[in-house]
Design a protein around this nucleic acid. Structure first.
Length: 651
RNA sequence: GCCGACGUAGCUCAAUCGGCAGAGCAGCUGUCUUGUAAACAGCAGGUCAGGGGUUCGAUUCCCCUCGUCGGCUCCA
């Protein structure tokens, strides 16, 4: 057959037999770097067959970037083996914003090594080595890769039925990619790999090695630790610079740094890792943040409860936490023959409140809310400021409802969550529906009911969502709400879980209209997740410049000269009457210095006053943006500030 | 917990190839009295993270511990 028929751009076309995907697409190999053939990603030099459907993969698409990054990972591995011939290869997949490759080496890489490796990579990129795909049998692969023990392990794993697809050995046949010198045609390097790849290393427009660190082989701490090198690669220098700039910005916004600079909180070593103390300025913001949430909950029909920080082991035995998470709990305390544990969760305590007396269907849904501080023993290596702490406060609610109420309750709950998050200035949301994990308790049919109720709530909310198979908690499927912050980072925040286990374990009941005793459903719901973590996320989102209603100091009065202090004192007194956190900077510093100080503290309103203002009974605004507004009558100034605070407006 | 880097004044950072530890900011005391991001001068501030070792002598070299940071694993 000298002609075959293929589908291109949705229309059928005849091309010569032997035509490659790249030829059919007229791909330049720079903007279009690979092809999708019948839905499968392929190299551009993939030879087409009759009936193939061919689509281009652009370098600036998500899929294209992944291919680019994966190819860059190969260049990295080649460079490492050039410089460290004894290095054994692990795996080298693309990841979000970049790629990595794992190596078994005697000595961990130093920053200097990374520089040398990156330099070697640039040489390889410049050479324009071609990526050439070559199918091999298992035996051939084993023979060629005899010196690569980890690759051999991957080959032997390939047959495993439930083995997840990897970039090394995905699919039915094994392939090796050769890196070929374009001048001599010699094979410079090769790697076991599924592909596809960019046509040539020269196509890699921008890359950079980022850092190295230890990583367990195949992700298990039982396995040996390899050395992982992370890098990033982009379709253009500009996009890479943008990304690097975002990282710099993220570093500037680091809540641990801002926490110290703005005097909000600290982690004294004497107290212990992961245990924060809140300074006055952090404390006031936290109080306002909590108070607003509490008020909204009360308005939405929640009842405020309070429970203790420790409990006898009995409670956690019934709840099952001791069985499942004992190693993450602080160790027990023995007192008068009883064993007490610091609480890792609030739910069993709320159940005790439910059980304190008989319940009627008329009371349901019963919504309990608590800012409950819990303690979990996080391993020392994972602590990270307020976002991963050992003591933290959950804004925890538990809702007990009848099976008939479940779907509606979840839907309104999700709406409530989103509305409240918006009030804190977050605007972009995504959700994830996590289904039954491998390790679970209960009846799969009930899991199905609960999962469907959650799905219904998501559909009703119109929120975009993904399904995360097997990511649920051991006792419940859940919805996680993710937000995007001001520099595009995703954070998981709220969680909604339908729990069919706790009601059974604690034998919860209510009396139905027909007089029978029935089992309620229970919904776990945290909105911030942890108040500490939410605080950190807001701080990073706003880069420390909190909206006026949350700012620790909302107004600083700055006199031009000492004689203007009394005028500002009067303004500040009026502001305080309205509940505004205002002060006058009467220190010995000059006016310019006071502005600088207030600016560095990210105070939303600086009110200046000199002779002009005093004579007109006015003040002059300086906002932290640098803008100013002079000679504003005092009443107007106060009204402007009060309005921004009351309506939670960011300035 | 594991791998690695780092730890000098409240903060940011110097210096000492093994020989009495130095600056800016912040603080304190004065002087100056000012219109939108740093007035001037003086003073004070350190077990060089902690412990042990090598050495005539250790902040510097070696070991251990603690802490921080970056990864991995984990995250009810």
């Amino acid at each position: 057959m000298s002609e075959i028929r293929i589908t291109l751009d949705g229309t059928e076309r005849a091309v010569a037999a032997g035509t490659t995907a790249g030829e059919a697409l007229s791909a330049d190999g720079r903007t279009v770097i690979a092809a999708r053939v019948n839905g499968q990603a392929r190299d551009l030099d993939h030879v087409l067959a009759d009936g193939d459907v061919v689509e281009p993969i652009a370098i600036d698409s998500e899929e294209g970037r992944a291919i680019l990054r994966h190819s860059t990972a190969h260049v990295l591995a080649q460079a490492v083996q050039d410089l460290f011939p004894e290095a054994k290869l692990g795996i080298g997949p693309p990841v979000e914003n970049g790629f990595y490759y794992d190596f078994d080496v005697a000595e961990p890489f130093t920053p200097d090594d990374l520089k040398r490796i990156e330099k070697r990579m640039r040489e390889i990129v410049k050479q324009g080595q071609r990526f050439r795909r070559r199918p091999v049998s298992d035996e051939e692969a084993r023979r060629e890769l005899a010196a690569e023990p980890y690759k051999l392990e991957l080959i032997s794993l390939k047959g495993g039925a439930s083995e997840e697809e990897s970039v090394e050995v995905g699919g039915a046949e094994l392939t090796i990619y050769d890196n070929v010198d374009p001048a001599s045609g010699e094979v410079r390097w090769k790697d076991l790999c599924r592909g596809p790849h960019v046509p040539s290393t020269r196509v890699i427009p921008a890359f950079k090695l980022m850092r190295s660190g230890g990583a367990y082989w195949r992700g298990s701490e039982k396995n040996p630790q390899l050395q992982r090198i992370y890098g990033t690669a982009w379709e253009s220098k500009e996009r890479q610079d943008e990304y690097l700039h975002m990282l710099e910005e993220a570093e500037k916004r680091d809540h641990r740094k801002l926490g110290a600079e703005l005097d909000l909180f600290s982690f004294p070593p004497e107290i212990g890792g992961g245990l924060a103390v809140w300074h006055p300025k952090g404390g006031i913001t936290r109080r306002v943040l909590e108070e607003y949430s509490r008020r909204r909950h009360e308005q939405a029909g929640y009842q405020f409860v309070v429970t203790p920080h420790i409990s006898k082991s009995t409670l956690f035995e019934i709840s099952g936490h001791l069985g499942w998470y004992a190693e993450g709990m602080y160790p027990p305390m023995e007192m008068e023959g009883a064993t007490y544990y610091p609480k890792p969760m609030n739910c069993p305590f709320h159940i005790m409140i439910y059980k304190s007396r008989g319940r009627s269907y008329r009371e349901l849904p019963l919504r309990m809310f608590e800012l409950g501080t819990v303690y979990r023993f996080e391993k020392s290596g994972v602590l990270h400021g307020l976002t991963r702490a050992r003591g933290f406060t959950q804004d925890d609610s538990h809702i007990f409802c009848t099976p008939e109420q479940l779907a509606d309750e979840l839907a309104s709950l999700l709406q409530f969550v989103l509305d409240l998050l918006r009030d804190y200035g977050l605007t972009e949301f995504e959700a994830e529906l996590s289904t039954r994990p491998e390790k679970f308790v209960g009846d799969p049919e009930e899991w199905e009911i609960a999962t469907e109720a959650l799905r219904h709530a998501l559909e009703k909310s119109g929120l975009p969502y993904k399904v995360a198979e097997g990511e649920g908690a051991f006792y419940a499927p859940k919805i996680d709400v993710h937000i995007k912050d001001a520099i595009g980072r995703r954070w998981q925040l709220s969680t909604l879980q339908v729990d069919l286990q706790m009601p059974q374990r604690f034998d919860l009941e209510y009396q139905a209209a027909d007089g029978t005793r029935r089992r309620p459903y229970m919904i776990h719901r945290a909105l911030f997740g942890s108040v500490e973590r939410f605080f950190a996320i807001l701080l990073e989102h706003y880069a420390g410049a909190l909206p006026p209603w949350l700012a620790p100091v909302q107004v600083v009065g700055i006199p031009i000269a000492d004689e203007h202090v009394p005028h500002l004192e009067r303004v500040v007194a009026k502001l305080r009457e309205k509940g505004i956190r205002a002060e006058v900077d009467a220190s010995a510093d000059r006016m310019q210095k006071k502005i600088r100080n207030a600016q560095k503290q990210k105070v939303p309103y600086m009110l200046l006053a000199g002779d002009d203002d005093v004579s007109k009974n006015a003040v002059s605004f300086r906002y932290r943006t640098g803008e100013q507004k002079n000679g504003v009558p005092i009443d107007e100034a106060i009204a402007e500030i009060v309005n921004a605070v009351e309506n939670r407006i960011q300035i």
